[in-house]
Simulated assay, not measured.
Amino acid sequence: MTTRRRAALVTATAALLSAALAVPAVAAPRPGTGHDATRRALHATVADGVPGVTATARDAHGTWSATAGVGDLSTGRPRSADDHYRVGSIAKTFVATVVLQLEAEGRLSLDDTVDRWLPGLVRGNGHDGTRITLRQLLNHTSGIANYTADEEFGRRYFTADGFFAHRFDTMPPRQAVAIALRHRPDFAPGTSWNYSNTNYVLAGLVIEKATGRPYGEEVRRRVVQPLGLGSTSVPGTRADLPRPSSRAYSKLAETTSGPTYDVTRINPSIAYAAGEMISGSDDLTRFYTALLRGRLLPPRQLAEMTTTVPMDDRTEYGLGLMKTRLSCGVTVWGHGGGIHGSTSEAVTTRDGRHALAFNFNGDWSGDVEAVVEAEFCRE
């Protein structure tokens, strides 16, 4: 991905973990108007090296979907507007929503410490769960080290040799926390900001402790089923994607050159609540629209979610939700994410009237910000 800190963040999230195309094919667009700039941006991502892209937008004119490039490099099969794909850290918004629902029900408080729910788990090497709140987990101000930035983790899951040896391993969430605790904290709790997937692994464990049920079951019961999100799932250890879907590709290296590997099948437990979920572009636009319109959270909790801390000069982070000011002055809310072979973005305006979600089935190139700018700054 390109474009300064915003892209760097999404790339890091995509590294949930990290690190000759066919002629582009375009799906017949669904009803909608005014998306020519977005269509050009989709084609530009393919020209930049992404195998294929699928996108859906919702606005006052209805729903519009388009694709470019291919979903399978070996056959040339085009991408589908109905593709399922791994959404990576977009899952964080779903998880934060569940935590905030539990707060609204009086079952926990954002001011609770991590140690209140997970006694003794976050302790050692400078970490202290008695000084970290649930709010600090959700807005990445906890200072807890990011387990996916661990060098050994990177070698195991983001190099070709390591990936193909370990792609089907199951990683329990407490193991991910233990990896993070090998490192010193990034900063004292509440004194700065740094993106850490460990925060949301812990948030998933808190949901399970507070409810007595797997966090994925709570996501399904509280968000997926009420909104009728038929393409959205929490796969656990399931390695395959539901159909329809495209293949997912990675270089499994820090460079954009070299071999391209098919990394579609993977046990996503290495991401757990930080990014294991699967969804589709239509579902994601409906989710973020419903969320920002207040269908999932009471006003107080939505206000908490949209209370932000600065990331850079254009982007702020709330509770599982990013706020980004575009070059044309429009502000969008949402999240980006990625995992092996998959880079995704989903955003909407604060009133929920204009939403966009899209996915690249490659993780080494493509300009996410350019697609978002094309859609929301088109007038």
Rank of each mutant, 00 (worst) to 15 (best):
R265I: 04
P310D: 08
G362W: 00
T198H: 15
G230E: 14
E152F: 13
G190D: 05
V330F: 00
D59G: 04
R213T: 09
Y195Q: 09
S269A: 15
T63C: 05
D82R: 11
S109P: 03
L138C: 13
C377Y: 09
R79S: 11
A44V: 13
T113G: 10
A346Q: 13
H84L: 01
L302C: 04
D128S: 05
S80M: 04
V50T: 07
G76R: 04
F287K: 03
V330R: 06
T133P: 02
D83Q: 11
T289C: 08
A57R: 07
Y261G: 02
G143T: 03
I144D: 05
A178I: 02
D363T: 02
G49S: 04
A27E: 13
T11H: 08
G76A: 03
R222F: 12
L296K: 14
E218Y: 10
E208Y: 10
L100R: 00
T264M: 08
V371Q: 01
A271Q: 11
A145E: 07
A210K: 02
L296Y: 13
G124I: 07
H354Y: 04
G49E: 01
R295Y: 04
R314M: 03
T13F: 11
D161E: 14
G32H: 01
T349L: 04
V53E: 02
A12G: 09
G143S: 11
Q136R: 07
L202K: 02
A253Q: 11
A176V: 09
